Deep mutational scan, measured.
Amino acid sequence: SEEELEEFAKEVLRRGITIIVNGIRITEVEIFVKVLREILEKR
């Protein structure tokens, strides 16, 4: 749901943790923004 997305976004921003994806360091915020864009483009 959109509320869950908002909560996830807030949690990500609070933690600001960097994770490893395919050997490249990407912040969770960047991943969230990318996923959010993909979701919005599909609408």
Results as ranks from 00 to 15, higher is better:
21 V>L: 14
34 K>C: 13
30 E>H: 10
3 E>V: 10
2 E>Y: 15
31 I>V: 08
37 R>P: 00
24 I>C: 10
42 K>C: 12
1 S>C: 15
25 R>Y: 13
10 K>Y: 05
24 I>S: 07
8 F>G: 01
28 E>S: 15
21 V>C: 14
22 N>L: 04
12 V>L: 14
39 I>G: 06
3 E>P: 08
11 E>Y: 00
23 G>N: 08
8 F>V: 03
23 G>Y: 08
11 E>I: 05
21 V>T: 05
7 E>F: 07
16 G>M: 15
28 E>H: 08
39 I>M: 13
15 R>W: 08
6 E>F: 15
11 E>C: 13
22 N>W: 04
4 E>P: 07
3 E>L: 13
35 V>S: 02
29 V>P: 08
20 I>F: 03
34 K>G: 06
2 E>N: 13
42 K>V: 09
11 E>P: 00
10 K>I: 04
3 E>G: 13
27 T>M: 08
18 T>H: 13
7 E>T: 06
19 I>K: 00
28 E>Y: 09
42 K>H: 11
33 V>E: 04
39 I>D: 02
22 N>R: 10
16 G>A: 12
24 I>M: 09
14 R>S: 13
37 R>T: 09
30 E>W: 05
40 L>K: 02
14 R>Y: 01
37 R>W: 10
33 V>Q: 02
15 R>F: 07
13 L>Q: 01
31 I>A: 14
39 I>P: 00
25 R>T: 10
35 V>C: 08
30 E>A: 08
30 E>D: 13
10 K>R: 12
16 G>S: 09
40 L>D: 01
1 S>R: 11
36 L>D: 03
18 T>N: 10
7 E>A: 13
2 E>Q: 13
29 V>I: 12
16 G>Q: 07
40 L>H: 05
16 G>H: 12
7 E>W: 13
16 G>D: 05
25 R>D: 11
41 E>L: 09
28 E>T: 14
1 S>P: 10
31 I>S: 12
13 L>C: 02
5 L>H: 01
19 I>C: 02
7 E>G: 06
21 V>I: 14
2 E>S: 13
29 V>M: 07
36 L>G: 00
40 L>P: 03
34 K>A: 09
10 K>C: 13
43 R>Y: 14
7 E>C: 14
27 T>F: 08
29 V>G: 02
6 E>G: 06
23 G>P: 05
36 L>K: 00
39 I>E: 06
22 N>D: 10
40 L>W: 11
18 T>S: 11
7 E>D: 09
2 E>T: 11
36 L>A: 00
1 S>A: 13
9 A>G: 03
24 I>K: 08
7 E>V: 03
42 K>N: 10
43 R>I: 15
38 E>M: 04
10 K>A: 04
27 T>W: 10
23 G>T: 05
3 E>F: 15
14 R>M: 11
19 I>D: 00
18 T>P: 14
31 I>W: 12
41 E>V: 06
25 R>K: 11
8 F>E: 02
30 E>T: 05
39 I>H: 08
14 R>P: 01
36 L>T: 03
39 I>N: 02
32 F>L: 15
10 K>E: 07
14 R>K: 13
32 F>C: 05
31 I>T: 07
34 K>E: 11
16 G>F: 15
11 E>V: 04
25 R>V: 11
14 R>Q: 10
35 V>L: 13
34 K>Y: 00
4 E>M: 13
9 A>N: 01
38 E>I: 04
8 F>L: 10
43 R>S: 10
8 F>I: 08
28 E>A: 11
13 L>W: 01
17 I>F: 06
40 L>V: 05
43 R>P: 08
31 I>Y: 09
18 T>D: 08
5 L>N: 02
2 E>P: 13
9 A>S: 03
21 V>N: 02
2 E>H: 12
42 K>D: 10
41 E>N: 13
36 L>Y: 00
5 L>W: 11
1 S>F: 15
43 R>C: 15
34 K>M: 04
8 F>K: 01
30 E>P: 08
35 V>R: 01
18 T>G: 07
27 T>G: 06
37 R>K: 14
28 E>V: 08
5 L>I: 08
12 V>K: 00
28 E>M: 09
24 I>L: 12
30 E>L: 09
42 K>R: 12
38 E>D: 12
35 V>G: 00
42 K>Y: 03
27 T>L: 10
15 R>I: 08
7 E>R: 12
18 T>V: 15
14 R>F: 03
1 S>Y: 15
29 V>K: 03
19 I>G: 00
25 R>A: 11
17 I>S: 05
32 F>Y: 06
4 E>S: 12
35 V>Y: 09
37 R>L: 14
37 R>E: 04
39 I>R: 04
41 E>P: 05
3 E>I: 12
14 R>I: 11
19 I>E: 00
31 I>M: 10
6 E>W: 15
28 E>F: 07
33 V>T: 02
20 I>M: 07
22 N>I: 08
17 I>K: 05
41 E>T: 06
19 I>R: 00
26 I>W: 05
34 K>L: 02
10 K>L: 07
18 T>E: 14
3 E>T: 13
30 E>V: 07
13 L>F: 08
5 L>P: 00
39 I>S: 05
12 V>Q: 07
34 K>D: 09
20 I>T: 08
1 S>Q: 08
35 V>F: 07
20 I>K: 06
13 L>D: 00
36 L>V: 05
19 I>M: 02
29 V>R: 01
30 E>M: 09
38 E>W: 05
7 E>L: 05
8 F>T: 01
18 T>L: 12
36 L>C: 11
24 I>N: 06
36 L>N: 00
28 E>W: 08
29 V>N: 03
27 T>D: 08
16 G>K: 06
11 E>H: 00
41 E>W: 01
5 L>T: 01
10 K>N: 05
9 A>D: 02
36 L>I: 09
5 L>F: 08
41 E>Q: 13
26 I>S: 06
19 I>Q: 00
12 V>N: 01
11 E>S: 06
13 L>S: 02
1 S>D: 07
30 E>Q: 05
8 F>A: 04
19 I>W: 00
40 L>G: 04
35 V>A: 09
36 L>R: 00
